[in-house]
Structures are given as structure tokens and as C-alpha cells.
Simulated assay, not measured.
Amino acid sequence: MSDVEKANSTHQNYVKLNGPPPTRIANPGALGLFSFASTTFILSLYNVNARGVVVPNVVVGMACFCGGLAQLLAGMWEFPRGNVFGATAFTSYGAFWMSYATIFIPDSGIIAAYGTNEDELHQALGIYLITWFVFTFLLMLGALRRNISFVALLFFLCITFVLLAVGIWTSKLNVSKAGGAFGILTAMIAYYCALSELLVKGESWFTLPLGTIKQAHMD
């Protein structure tokens, strides 16, 4: 066994026995979740045509800097804390929001490339959304032993992506609006999870439970 392999093996054994090594980096979970929740809430309101809004482009700035950059940074900070799940989730959804925003930036040329072929654009956007459903579903499987709140968050996000994809594929406005409604529900759960991360014992008057899932002991 090489010195590198020995070092990696020692590190893995340490983590198994003692958990992630201590770090001075604060918990970025609240930042990532609040950023995700706020951006999802705004776009979902647009998807249900709240206040008569049909064009969603106002969300571009939010998607670039709040849902995108802030979440990406939260994901990067999760890595040195040893939280692979949080790092993967925040970094990926940060990238999702930045890529989504890029589609609607006129100078990106993405929508313009389809010209007058609106049906092809809709099919392409549907594939984009269903791909994120697949990723979210796999992430949900990874969250099944964490807590009920995160499982619920990812479950309703899965439904949101499916409805939005089907709505844009079929051009059925009611299906897209249903996707927006589930998106609002997803955002509310994300706000709850974010507040739970923010309210810590010793610094807050109360805390919010995330719903502990009993761990099965494996011999």
C-alpha cells in the first residue's frame, strides 16, 4: 500500500470513528436553503401567473446571484465540513439556477437559436426539466435516512419538475400552473428547513424539528 493510500485509509477510519474533522467554517445550510427557497418561491409564483405575471425574466437576477451564486458558495463550504450530501445538493442546485437563468438572458442566444420553432424549444426545455427530476429523485434516495423534512422537500421538488416538464411538453397551462403550485409548497418546506438550520440551541428562543428518522443498526 502506498503512502497516499495509507493516508486516505487513516482519514476514512478517523471519519468513521469520530465524524468529520473540526472546522471553523460556520454551517452554510441556512444560506443555501434560504437562497433556494426564495428563488423557487418567486419563479413558482410566476408559474401560477400571480398578479398577472406571464414572463418570468425578472427571476434571472435572483437565479444568478441568490439561487445560483449563494447556493454554489454554500455547497463549496459544505465540502470542508465533510457534508457530502449538502455539498452535492447546494452546488448542483446553484448550478441549476445559473444555467436556468442563462437560458433567459437574451445575449446568450439560447432561445434565439430556435427561431420560430417554438415546439422544439418546448421539447428541449422539457428534457432539461426532466433531467433535473432524475437528479432530484436520486438525491431524495440519498436523503431517506436523514430527516423527514429534507425527504419531503425533495419529494415535492420531484413532483414540481415532472409537472413543469409535462406542462411544457404538452403546452397545457393548467399542468404548468400545478407545477407552480407544488413549487410554492416546495419553497415553504425549504423555508422551514432553512429556519430550522438558523435556529440553534443556546442562541435562539426556540428550535424547529426536522423530523428524525430512526436509524437501523447494522451489524
Rank of each mutant, 00 (worst) to 15 (best):
P56V: 14
T39N: 05
F36R: 07
V48W: 09
N57A: 11
P28Q: 01
A37Q: 07
A63G: 11
V54W: 08
N27F: 01
F34L: 05
P28A: 08
N47H: 11
Y46D: 13
G61H: 00
Y46W: 08
V55T: 07
S38G: 12
F65L: 12
L33H: 04
V59W: 03
G52S: 13
L31R: 00
V59R: 04
V55R: 12
L31G: 01
S35V: 07
L45R: 02
V55N: 15
V60N: 07
V53H: 12
M62V: 10
R24H: 11
F34G: 02
N27I: 09
A26I: 09
G32I: 10
F41N: 04
A26H: 09
Q71S: 10
T39W: 06
F65A: 04
S44R: 14
G52E: 14
L43D: 01
V60M: 09
N57G: 02
I42P: 00
P22M: 06
R51F: 15
A37M: 07
Q71H: 05
L33M: 14
V54F: 03
N27K: 11
N27S: 11
L72P: 03
N47I: 11
S44Y: 13
T40S: 14
F65E: 06
L31T: 08
L69K: 03
N57P: 00
Q71K: 06
A37E: 08
I42R: 06
G68C: 02
G32P: 04
G61C: 06
A50G: 06
L31A: 13
L72R: 00
T39Q: 04
N49Y: 14
V53D: 01
N27M: 01
G32Y: 05
V53P: 05
L72V: 08
F36P: 02
T39S: 13
F41V: 00
F65G: 05
A70F: 13
N27E: 13
F36T: 02
R51K: 10
M62H: 12
S44A: 14
G29V: 11
F34S: 12
I25K: 07
F65V: 02
L45H: 06
C66R: 03
V59T: 15
S44L: 09
T39A: 12
A63W: 01
T23C: 02
N47K: 14
L69D: 02
M62T: 12
Q71A: 08
G52Y: 13
T40A: 15
F36M: 05
